[in-house]
């Protein structure tokens, strides 16, 4: 058994058995991370470059830790401090790095489709660490892993995706993954932040009523309001957004059952999540971060197997 794709560009390209394989492998890596020595020699012959053309804390650190826990050699690249600022193209930059015998590329880019473009031109395995408003596959995988931990499975589970669906690559990857694995998905948020034909394009429900949706769901994955990607006002103020769609303690306490609260980070406290919810007992936000390392180890481990990897 192996992955049906040589790269991880998006959840869109994965089959449900690929997702199952990644999640099951991640479970073994999670056990590795509980050991006194949290490191295995599996990728000691592999060199990985982390190419981050866009800012990131969690994802970059998580990938780097996953790579080091697998004993890979790690190169870090951030666009700001590189020749990209002198006008070098992304493909030139990558080809120069690959000519130094690098086997895998972890790419974060603000342009949607950047890893897909790269995959057409280079032979190294590519892991998409977030491309524009398209996909963030490892986040969706770690979300799924965390949902399984918290609720025991994915199939038939009711998942609400809350907030800025329009600008969220996390939302899109989650929708692909959850519907492929047989979960029910409802997206909820202001009409201006939900793409018009979402319900037709995917097997999801669209709601504009936060209370009703929370009452329905087992898990609420709350997204960050991505002000940096909005070039026109889509709601009148952050305060108004918080009053209409923010998740407060009062809202959660008014529900007839306990639900699980997730957030991919970074949190805008007091906007999409109030602090007492983000730090409350329903929240598994920090478990998501912990699981992220194991899931990324699984992805890198499974993709590193290419006979003779890289070029």
């Amino acid at each position: 058994m192996k992955l049906s794709t040589p790269h991880l560009l998006g959840i869109k390209d994965l089959q449900s058995h690929d997702i199952r394989l990644i999640l099951d492998t991640a479970r073994q890596f999670k056990e590795v991370l509980q050991r006194p020595i949290k490191k295995v020699p599996s990728l000691r012959d592999i060199t990985i470059v982390n190419l981050f053309f866009e800012n990131s804390t969690r994802t970059r650190i998580s990938f780097e830790l996953a790579e080091r826990r697998l004993s890979a050699d790690v190169l870090n690249f951030t666009a700001g401090a590189s020749s990209v600022s002198k006008g070098e193209t992304m493909l030139d930059t990558v080809n120069n790095i690959l000519s130094m015998k690098v086997d895998m590329v972890v790419l974060r880019h603000s342009a949607s489709g950047a890893p897909h473009f790269l995959a057409k031109h280079i032979s190294a395995a590519i892991v998409n660490a977030g491309d524009g408003i398209n996909e963030h596959p490892t986040q969706a995988l770690l979300d799924a892993f965390s949902i399984e931990d918290a609720t025991g499975g994915l199939e038939g589970k009711k998942i609400a995706i809350v907030g800025d669906i329009m600008h969220s690559r996390v939302a899109l990857s989650n929708i692909y993954l959850l519907t492929k694995m047989g979960a029910e998905v409802t997206v909820v948020g202001p009409p201006t932040l939900i793409p018009k034909y979402l319900a037709e394009a995917f097997n999801v429900r669209v709601s504009y009523n936060i209370k009703e949706t929370l009452e329905w769901c087992d898990v609420a994955n709350v997204l960050r309001i991505q002000l940096e990607r909005q070039n026109q006002p889509l709601f009148s103020s952050l305060r108004e957004y918080n009053l209409a769609y923010g998740i407060s303690r009062k809202l959660l306490d008014g529900l007839s059952k306990k639900i699980v609260i997730m957030h991919p980070g970074p949190i805008n406290r007091g906007v999409e999540l109030d602090s007492d919810v983000a730090d409350g007992h329903e929240s598994i936000i920090l478990q998501q971060v912990e699981n992220g390392v194991a899931v990324r180890m699984a992805v890198l481990y499974l993709l590193a197997d290419r006979g003779e990897a890289g070029n």
Partner: peptide, 10 residues
Amino acid sequence: RRGLLIPNKT
């Protein structure tokens, strides 16, 4: 590197 190996439970 001679083929993908799927881990079992430790």
